Computed example of a mutant assay.
Amino acid sequence: MRLLLMHADLIAYETLSRTKVAETDIVAKDAMQDALVAFCAVESADETDPEDIAAQTAAEIRAVAAKVGAVRVMIYPYAHLSSDLARPAAAVSVLKETARVLMATSSLEVRRAPFGYYKKFTVICKGHPLSELSRHLVPSQKGTAADTCLSSP
C-alpha cells in the first residue's frame, strides 16, 4: 500500500466519467472540511493478505489523524502512487475494509471517494510540518512483528 496523507482544510471531489473498472453504488460528489486525506494505491503484494494491509492502513491513518488532530478522514483511491497495482476488485475490497476498520476502531468520521472514476478534486493543504506525509506499507510476514512502515515519520 502506498499512502500520501494530507491534512487539509478542504477536500472536495466530483466524478466526471467511469472507467471500465468503476465500482457501482457510489457518492458522485462530496466534500469534507478539516480532514485527513488518505490518497491510497493498493499494490499487487497487498493481495497476499488484504485483511492485514487494511488493518495496517487503518492503524497508520488513525495514528496520523491523532497526531494532526483530525476527526475526519477521506479515503481517496489514487493509483498514480504506484506502478504495481492490485487487481481492481482486490483494491476496492481493501479500501472498503480499511474504511470499515477505521469506523469500527475510532470515532473518526470516515468517507471514501469512489474507485474507477475520473474525478476532479480540490485539496487545500494546511501547510504545517505534518500536513504532508507518505507511507509504504507491506503485508506482514507471518510470525514476525516487524514494523512495516518504510518511511520515516
Rank of each mutant, 00 (worst) to 15 (best):
Y118M: 14
V110Y: 04
P139L: 05
D30M: 07
A90R: 09
T48L: 11
H80L: 09
A12Q: 14
L102E: 03
R62C: 10
V101K: 00
M32K: 09
R72P: 02
P50I: 02
L16S: 03
H80E: 11
K67M: 12
D34A: 05
Y118H: 13
D52K: 07
I75D: 02
P153D: 14
L5A: 01
L85E: 06
H7S: 13
H128N: 05
V92Q: 15
L36C: 00
R135N: 04
S106A: 02
L150T: 02
Y78E: 01
A54V: 09
C40F: 06
A58G: 11
S106V: 05
A104R: 11
E23C: 04
F121W: 07
A104G: 10
T148Q: 15
R2W: 09
S107E: 14
A104L: 12
S131I: 04
Q56W: 05
A45C: 14
V94W: 01
T148R: 14
R100K: 15
V64G: 00
T148D: 08
K67C: 08
S17L: 11
V138C: 03
S152H: 14
A104K: 12
S134V: 05
P153G: 13
K142H: 13
P50T: 08
E97G: 04
S106R: 00
S44V: 15
K20H: 13
L102K: 03
M6N: 02
M74E: 04
R62Y: 09
P114W: 04
I61A: 10
R111G: 06
I124T: 13
D25A: 15
V123L: 14
A90K: 12
I124Q: 06
H128M: 06
Y117F: 12
P153Q: 13
H7D: 14
E47A: 15
V21M: 09
T98W: 02
D9M: 06
R72Y: 03
A90T: 06
P50C: 13
G69Y: 00
L16H: 10
F121C: 00
I124C: 02
S44D: 15
V37R: 03
I53Q: 02
E43N: 10
D46N: 11
L137Q: 06
